[in-house]
Design a protein around this nucleic acid. Structure first.
Length: 106
DNA sequence: CGCAGTCTAGCAC
DNA sequence: GTGCTAGACTGCG
């Protein structure tokens, strides 16, 4: 089941530099799809956990959303990456947020 | 605030 | 083997 979406999903996620985070939405858009939920689904399953830093993926509103190991663990990991969190939201989300290059030549 | 859209994987028949 | 449901989301009414 090597769906292109899943494969690219991990690939894009791995392109996110340490200390930065991305959103499910941006990931889906970057993949050229609209299956925002799909991203979350893949992350939840996370068959490539050590290779797929799903903790670098957060909701579009800068919230953590969820984590297989618990949002608390996610916040801890993010803190180690150099990202702080407030409650269940990312601190300076817009600053640490990593935007994928959109190839949109109009 | 509630529903619909989109995709994959797992469970049921 | 095929069909349906659920899920770490988002956008619009």
């Amino acid at each position: 089941m090597n769906s292109k979406l899943t494969e690219d999903c991990y690939k894009l996620l791995r392109t996110v530099p340490r200390g930065n985070v991305t959103t499910y939405k941006d990931l889906a858009i970057a993949l050229g799809t609209k299956a925002y939920r799909l991203i979350g689904r893949i992350m939840n399953k996370n068959p490539d956990a050590p290779n797929t830093p799903c903790h670098r993926v957060v909701n579009s509103n800068g919230k953590i959303g969820g984590y297989f190991y618990g949002t608390s663990k996610k916040k801890e990991l993010l803190a180690k990456e150099g990202i702080s969190t407030i409650g269940d939201s990312i601190w300076e989300f817009d600053t640490v947020r990593f935007k994928f290059p959109s190839n949109k030549d109009s």
